[in-house]
């Protein structure tokens, strides 16, 4: 009798453990608690710190209201960093989306040796970005780097005549070039410092970052392309849609969702990236290539102005909030369909 009761109690306890209402929170709970503590906590702390004059070495400071935000805004370096972040994000996203779209369309086809191309294209994504950027430091080297070697060396063997820098200088001498480019003609005896001139350095940063994001965006595009059912293509073919018409009315609209996802990720990964700029130029020359992230690092860690630094990095929050809202909206729409 008591044995049966015991068994029943064990059974009931097990049933309780099996209860969905109980089991789901138990399984999800630890992850949520952990994430809240390690993401939500610091985020709130960042907001708090940005409203104080805290410095490294103390977790609290005098309450100073929004003056950190005002001070940051009044600094010319901050303005420049904000502008750089916008330019950096916008241009690299255009480059990345166009490249990834083209690449994914090509890679979804069947062709010989596809795996080796895929391997080569994925390489930048698989490389730790801090290390990949060091490779580019060497590529942009002004004495032994790739670009300057090509530009000021006679590339035709025995030719003694064709120096590629001459063609570049001819182009640079066109009066149609906008003045803000600020690129001087190339002096073969003093070749360009790729990372030592503001416009060139920004271009280098954008190039390196695009190089790193293109494979990832391509992968997302590939996933989206392969989720378009073949029947749609067939139906378009039956209806006589070909070439550009098919691309405009069938392929492009179907890809809009996946392009949106790739873009939203790209914006977040680009606007909040610090590694490429940090290693390539560290904001130089003369603080002309700082992004919000590197400027926050220099202010908050290097200069120990914790509150100031937190305020600078929190200027990124509106961008992130916007992306989050768009993502949520997007997720809800796919759920409905």
């Amino acid at each position: 009798m008591s044995v049966a009761a015991e068994a029943g109690r064990v059974r009931r306890r097990r049933d309780f453990l099996e209860e969905r209402r109980f089991l789901a929170p138990v399984l999800i709970g630890p992850a949520i608690i952990f994430i809240t503590a390690l993401v939500g906590g610091p985020l709130l702390l960042a907001v708090y710190l940005s409203l104080t004059d805290a410095t490294a070495g103390s977790l609290t400071g005098e309450w100073v209201g929004v003056s950190n935000y005002v001070d940051a805004w009044d600094s010319p370096i901050f303005r420049r960093a904000l502008r750089n972040t916008l330019i950096f994000t916008a241009i690299s996203q255009v480059v990345v989306l166009v490249s990834a779209g083209l690449l994914a369309h090509a890679l979804i086809r069947k062709f010989r040796g596809k795996w080796i191309f895929r391997f080569l294209i994925l390489l930048p994504w698989a490389t730790p970005i801090a290390l990949g950027t060091i490779g580019f430091l060497w590529i942009f080297d002004s004495l032994f780097g790739v670009f300057n070697w090509i530009l000021v060396h006679d590339v035709l063997p025995g030719g003694q005549a064709f120096y590629p820098y001459k063609a570049v200088n001819w182009l640079l001498a066109r009066p149609a070039l906008p003045g803000w480019l600020e690129i001087a003609p190339i002096d073969p005896f003093n070749p360009p410092q790729w990372l030592g001139q503001p416009t060139l350095a920004m271009a280098a940063i954008i190039a390196v970052h695009s190089w790193r994001i293109i494979p990832f965006a391509t992968v997302i595009f590939l996933a989206g392309l392969s989720s378009i059912p073949a029947e749609v293509e067939d139906a378009a073919k039956v209806d006589g849609a070909t070439g550009l018409r098919k691309f405009w009315y069938v392929t492009l609209p179907l890809q809009l969702p996946i392009a949106t996802v790739a873009l939203l990720f790209g914006i977040v990964f680009t606007a909040t990236d610090m590694t490429v700029v940090f290693i390539l130029t560290h904001g130089g020359p003369f603080n002309s290539t700082h992004m919000l992230t590197t400027w926050a690092f220099d202010t908050g860690i290097t200069s120990s102005a914790l509150g100031q630094g937190a305020a600078i990095s929190l200027y990124l929050l509106p961008v992130l909030a916007l992306v989050a809202i768009l993502m949520l909206r997007f997720a809800r729409r796919t759920e409905v369909s």
């Binding site: 993401v39 610090m274 860690i301 990124l316 993502m327 997720a331």
Partner: peptide, 28 residues
Amino acid sequence: GQSVGVAIFLTYLVPPTLLFLPMSRVIT
């Protein structure tokens, strides 16, 4: 479940560059 899933995923988008300053204090 879907909503919680998306919410968890969104926290992945909160970047280290936003959190490293307060985190550095906590770590100390």
